[in-house]
Design a protein around this nucleic acid. Structure first.
Lengths: 347, 347
DNA sequence: GTTCACAAAGTAACCGGTTACACGCGCCAA
DNA sequence: TTGGCGCGTGTAACCGGTTACTTTGTGAAC
């Protein structure tokens, strides 16, 4: 590998001068600069970023620590981060916490000396533990995680408000009995969505004890919920699933049981996965601009790196948008929907 | 930040001893080791990976350079890479070439001194240019790119064989007139798929001039092809689109024109995007295990890093699997399918 | 009691850059 | 002529670790 010394020797100057010429400092004469650059070209010299960052105390890299994510969510969040990072000439070092708390600590520790800042999304790690893992000297922004006592800037989606709005919309469209399929119990997003649903039901429909079926964000748990609905003959004219994945499973299983969406029952999801608009009828859902979660987080981190002092007060809350499609379609007159019992004809 | 010298001072030993104790070398006595580790804990010392990799000449990081990728493809490939990398304690540094050739060179250069090896997927860069950008001293594996003259190990999907198999399958299911919708002309995957189709038609159906409609992998170009088919009243009882995206557009537009799939015409795609199985009827397609592209590439790179010398001869070719679903469904008797003309009733 | 072998710990060079400081030189004012 | 200034360049310390080499100290062998 060619080093700076090789270049300096070739150009007949000292390493200091070579370094200055390469980095475009002003105190180098034209001819000297040319000689150095010629040597660089001739020897095919590329600066060693590792060595450079050691003295500069800057790596031009940010660490991104995400949980085990699948599909669109992962790629969208990275895309959002990269979009902003790339503009500022920053690189992305990926760390995966693979679910376990222990790995989270390891992933964060491994970042020391490699990155200038951290973007962390630790859905399953308790705040008090997280505090112990993070290096207070390293600028850090949390993704989709209310920092709580940590006083770190964060970006989150307003799941509560989204779920509230969706529930409200279903009621406005004439639903009387809305049922919610919840996400995993320990999952913060899921809990917030459930709270939004419960509050909207209480406030708008004056229903204090709405039906909530368990789920875990998987398609299968959506199917399971559908079976519960049909077999239990639960009176429902609308189902609000805590995510699209479950809504998809729900709809498929309802169809198998002879229940038609939206004729017999309306269905809504959350997230707006790409599949949502391709279903027929299309799935009504809350669109979460996941890429914005990433890009906004990265912007906050850049400000932190520039020296601004930002705390939890600088948090950004993203509002999801309601996308109305076919599964809540048709201008059903108030209370006109048949409900699940009507369509159900068990095999 | 705490450094190794701080730890050494605290423990009352030299930096060399501290370093040895921390790295578990054998030539340190028990009490000394304990003293050092106690100091580490007390001062909350975390080794500076940047400095460490400078002397060790190992970064435990591999660079991953991908084009602008969206959605599933991107996340799956990263997931595959991470799976293997994580097992070997390797980190992933992401670089995006953002389409342009110039950025590709920059992305590769930026990796110098940060990574031990490179995983590159350069679909739009010409081999002779790529050769100039790559550092011959840096272990490199190419993804989905036939190295050609570069003599680098690579992993690719056997698009030719996949397309051949799919065409054959359509013919076996009774199709007489199969039409292909091609992908972008400059795209290597698209070209290989087209060749597979042409060869299968020649060999199996003795058809030397099969109809090929232009496309660009987009949903719109699939719709466009459908309009051509219907308006031109082209005799076709099966359409093989070069990717799923186009097949989706095709099917939607055919439905609008009153052509039923698979009753009037069979449709097949390529890739097995998640949407494929959610359509009704489900889309018959070739499943490319994208994560295996990543994991296999990473395995090759690990071997390279271990010192094995691997050239283009070590390439791994992944075979896609045929997933038969509804769009080629029904046990149509030989030649019994109505064809497009039959179902078409232009508005 | 001296010699030798060997283990534990220290000293300092080194990885590949950056940069504070020193140096030499030409130019101008005093 | 001399002192001062500024510019271009070189010398060497430094970033934070690792490790070759050296030193010190202990016990076994003669």
């Amino acid at each position: 590998m060619t080093t700076l010394r090789d270049v300096a020797r070739e150009a007949g100057v000292s390493v200091a001068t070579a370094s200055r010429a390469i980095n475009g400092h002003s105190n180098v004469t034209g001819p000297t600069r040319d000689a150095v650059l010629a040597a660089v070209k001739k020897l095919n010299f590329v600066p060693h970023s590792g060595a450079r960052s050691l003295t500069r105390k800057k790596t031009d890299t940010v660490g991104v620590i995400l949980p085990d994510l699948f599909g669109e969510f992962f790629s969208e969040i990275i895309r959002g981060i990269d979009l902003v990072a790339h503009e500022s000439g920053m690189h992305l070092l990926l760390g995966n916490m693979h679910g376990s708390t222990h790995e989270t600590a390891a992933a964060i520790a491994a970042m020391r000396g490699r990155v200038d800042g951290l973007l962390v999304m630790p859905p399953d790690v308790k705040p008090e533990l997280l505090a112990g893992y993070l290096d207070p000297a390293l600028p850090t922004v949390l993704l989709n995680y209310d920092a709580g006592p940590l006083d770190l800037p964060f970006v989150a989606v307003d799941n509560y408000r989204g779920a509230y709005a969706m529930t409200e919309a279903l009621l406005e469209r004439g639903a009387r009995q809305v049922i919610h399929i919840a996400g995993p119990k320990h999952n913060r997003d899921a809990r917030d969505r459930q709270r939004g649903f419960v509050d909207a039901m209480a406030k708008v429909a004056k229903e204090r004890n709405p039906v909530i079926l368990p789920g875990d964000f998987s398609e299968e748990s959506g199917e399971e919920a559908a079976r519960l609905l049909v077999q239990g003959q639960l009176p429902a004219d609308a189902v609000f699933a805590a995510n699209d994945q479950m809504a998809v499973g729900l709809i498929a299983e309802l169809a198998r049981a002879g229940v038609s969406v939206p004729r017999d029952v309306m269905v809504a999801g959350f997230d707006d996965i790409p599949l949502a608009r391709h279903l027929s009828p299309g799935l009504t859902t809350m669109q979460v601009n996941i890429d914005r979660l990433g890009s906004t987080g990265m912007m906050l981190l850049l400000r932190l790196l520039r020296g601004d002092t930002l705390g939890a007060a600088s948090a950004t809350i993203l509002n999801p948008d309601l996308i109305a499609r076919g599964t809540t379609g048709g201008a059903a007159a108030d209370g006109a929907r048949a409900g699940i019992a009507a369509g159900a004809s068990p095999p």
